[in-house]
Amino acid sequence: MTAHATPHPAGHTASAAAGRPLMTASGVEKSYRRGIWPARHAQAVLKGANLELLPGEVVGLVGENGSGKSTLMKVLFGELAPDAGTVEHVGRLGYCPQEPVVYERLTCDEHFELFGHAYRMNPADEHTSRRRLYETLGFTRYAGTRADQLSGGTLSKLNLGLALLADPEVLLLDEPYAGFDFDTYLRFWDLVAERRAAGRSVLIISHFVVDEHRFDRIVQLHDGTTHDRPPHDRPSE
């Protein structure tokens, strides 16, 4: 099972309270082997990417198709090992991959139970979090529906809900609102605003950023390296 979150290490509360970064990536490099022998060669995708996520910060990661956004996200989460560089984080990670990672024959309820167990959540806390996510994202009526019978939009809600279930300090989202209708899209941003207010960090990958005023920073990934820039309009809070 590809996990959507990782457990808390000791001391996570003190680090967040001190305002230190919840995640830091330094000099991340990643290459893939391409072609067929004897013409096989290494193609560098990440060439020293850097990223820092602070408590209460919402960051957008943008770049052209093939720029390495999803590769960087997988390295940050630990799904891929970097060829060079380091990634450090404080607290639990929540990861919403671009393609939902689910079991076709399990219902939504069964997914939440399974992931809650993997996160070592108290059953009562898992149930409370699950019910709130159903209500907030608007898919309560699908609680007993198998994943292979869900529409694409509802499957995206489940995918996001699994990443949010354990209230992670750092939330990594790869094109999270694909398939959402406008009402769900607004609900999504309500959840993001709650995480900012609670001192959590959120990183959102997108081919292009809309509603740029909702972000604190935009990170551009180009030619394997990252470049920070402020959004055009800061969020008003």
Rank of each mutant, 00 (worst) to 15 (best):
E104L: 14
T145C: 08
Q98K: 04
E99P: 00
A118H: 08
D83P: 08
V75I: 15
V87W: 04
L106R: 13
A124Q: 08
L76Y: 02
K69H: 02
E104D: 15
H117I: 00
Y119S: 08
E79T: 12
E104Q: 15
H117M: 01
N65K: 04
D125F: 01
D125T: 06
G66K: 14
L93T: 10
G85F: 07
P82E: 11
G91H: 13
G91K: 12
G66Q: 09
L76D: 01
R120D: 12
G138C: 06
A118G: 00
G91V: 13
H111P: 06
P100W: 06
V102D: 01
S70E: 05
V87K: 02
G91R: 11
L114P: 03
H89Y: 14
G78T: 07
A84F: 05
A118K: 05
F139C: 10
T145H: 10
V90D: 09
C96S: 12
F139S: 12
L72R: 07
C108M: 12
A81Q: 15
G94Y: 03
H111V: 06
L76C: 03
L93Q: 05
A143P: 08
M121Q: 06
A81G: 04
T136R: 15
S129L: 00
L80F: 08
Y119A: 14
S70M: 05
E110Y: 09
G138Q: 04
G66Y: 11
R141E: 15
L93I: 09
R105A: 14
G116E: 01
Y103L: 15
K69P: 00
P100T: 06
P123W: 07
A81W: 12
R131K: 10
S129M: 02
F112V: 08
G94P: 12
N65A: 02
H89N: 13
Y103F: 15
P82F: 12
P82L: 11
F112T: 10
Y95W: 14
L72P: 01
H89W: 14
T140F: 05
Y142M: 09
D125L: 07
L76I: 08
E113P: 01
E99I: 14
V75W: 02
E104R: 15
V101L: 14
K69E: 00
A118L: 15
T71H: 09
E88D: 13
R141V: 10
V90M: 04
E110I: 10
H89L: 05
H117C: 01
